[in-house]
Design a protein around this nucleic acid. Structure first.
Lengths: 259, 259
DNA sequence: CTTGACTCTACACGAATTTGCATGAATTTA
DNA sequence: TAAATTCATGCAAATTCGTGTAGAGTCAAG
């Protein structure tokens, strides 16, 4: 185990969990706490993290807006992201929608083979900067600030030039009768367009999206191939969706809930 | 076994695993560790990887490269960014190039009136999420990972649809005779195209860019309207540029030097 | 075919780095 | 206040590093 490798693992944990506990890392890696403490000290000296008693914290106390949205269900979204990323196969073209759930997919993408990611979210694209093997296609257009995705005619015309194998979609609301919906008309149009181009479309849905309705309809539930949800939901909540012929993929969140 | 063959195998491993352990490679190939170490040293000298104790790591996983570039002169870049942002007028269309200097412009943009920012850098676009009054146009295309900007035919065709009032440009090198240059051919082409569409083009140049040359030429110095530089440079270093009819805007860094 | 220059590899050895343990100080918790 | 963690430092053992050196292989000129 290389020292640098440890440090990058520590930084990964920090970004993922928002904190790092020295003892936990030491046990996990089978090394002495001294070694981990030394790493933390050096990373702190490099300005990579903030040293605290027992471990370390990120430098910036997380952007308030981002933090607020994260508190919804960070570990659940991670689980959804991991499960979705596992569908990716070498050489495929994957379209990632904007949003915090799909951002988790970007973090969990495999690193041992090549594929192409298309996205109209600059946030997702920036996230992929560190990825070693992913080719990235950025879809441009007028940027809809609230959700940070490109929309409009320019975005549409670029989307028409590609044909993704998989489309991982986020939505504000999901309802068995009213389908997928979101708050902005143009955003809904773009999502619909991407789905029409993609061979398969999958939705990532946290519990708070289920059985809700937002003003702008994206498409009926039957138009998507599958929905990723957290495990442990009552089966009668999922039954109406199953009845529409949609695959429901339940994902297990890891034990350690990030705060 | 040819040396080059070993090196490319090492690079493959690095891309695949995100790390390389000298000892492991030596055993696998039945060679001495010395040989592998030599290869690693040479690859590091070529800028292909980052040498660490026990092996090697990719160049920019944790963005040490980015961090290193920042440490060049954070307060100077802030000063350049502030001065450039001060040129922006209400209602204008501003094109921001990718890079750490132009990112400082994005941070310093006025917040008391409206304007439009176009950029082919998802990093810059993400930076503008928090801006209250800026409209953002994202230029898409194939993402050139190293500098995180969209390039290629798709990007070009979108740029041809807009006509910016100002273009704030970054470059790897600046030379009175050889002009502006950078390391990638496509990146140079995109910069050139944007400049040809913009009414005025301004370069942000930290001291380390002056009187250097990179492989791919962007354009002659005389094609740009002005260059932002830090104050306190020897006047004979700037004279050759002034002689080309280019405005030199000197900017005063603030007292508190970041780190 | 031989010679000489050049390159590459393995081994040797001192220097530098890393790691785990011990100790006493500092901090947190009850 | 007392007990329990956690921390920083010093130290020794192990690993890794860089340089110098010698031997093997390649290539071209003679």
């Amino acid at each position: 185990m290389l020292a640098e490798q440890r440090k990058s693992l520590i930084m990964d944990r920090l970004r993922r969990d928002g904190q790092v506990v020295a003892k936990a890392v030491a046990e996990e890696l089978g090394l002495s706490e001294d070694t981990i403490r030394r790493d933390l000290r050096e990373l702190a000296a490099e300005g990579q993290l903030r040293r605290v008693h027992g471990g370390a914290m990120p430098l910036a106390p997380e952007l308030p807006d981002f933090a607020a949205r994260r508190t919804v269900s960070p570990s659940v979204k991670r689980a959804l992201g991991r499960a979705a990323a596992a569908l990716v196969r070498p050489g495929q073209l994957i379209f990632l929608d904007g949003g915090t759930s799909t951002a988790e997919i970007a973090k969990a993408l495999p690193r041992d083979f090549g594929f192409t990611i298309a996205t109209h979210s600059p946030t997702i694209a920036a996230e992929l900067e560190a990825h070693p093997t992913a080719e990235v296609i950025l879809i441009g257009g007028r940027l809809y600030k609230h959700s940070m995705v490109a929309v409009g005619a320019a975005a549409s015309s670029q989307i028409l030039l590609i044909r993704p194998d998989l489309f991982f979609l986020g939505a504000t609301a999901l309802h068995p009768i009213h389908g997928l919906s979101t708050g902005d008309l143009e955003e809904a149009a773009i999502k619909r367009l991407i789905a029409s181009r993609a061979a398969e479309t999958f939705l990532l849905a946290t519990e708070n999206k289920l059985d809700h309705v937002s003003p702008c309809t994206i498409m009926p539930v039957s138009d998507i191939s599958g929905i990723f949800v957290q495990s442990g939901l009552a089966s009668d909540r999922l039954a109406p969706y199953r009845a529409l012929g949609v695959r429901i993929i339940e994902t297990q969140a890891d034990e350690q809930d990030g705060s």
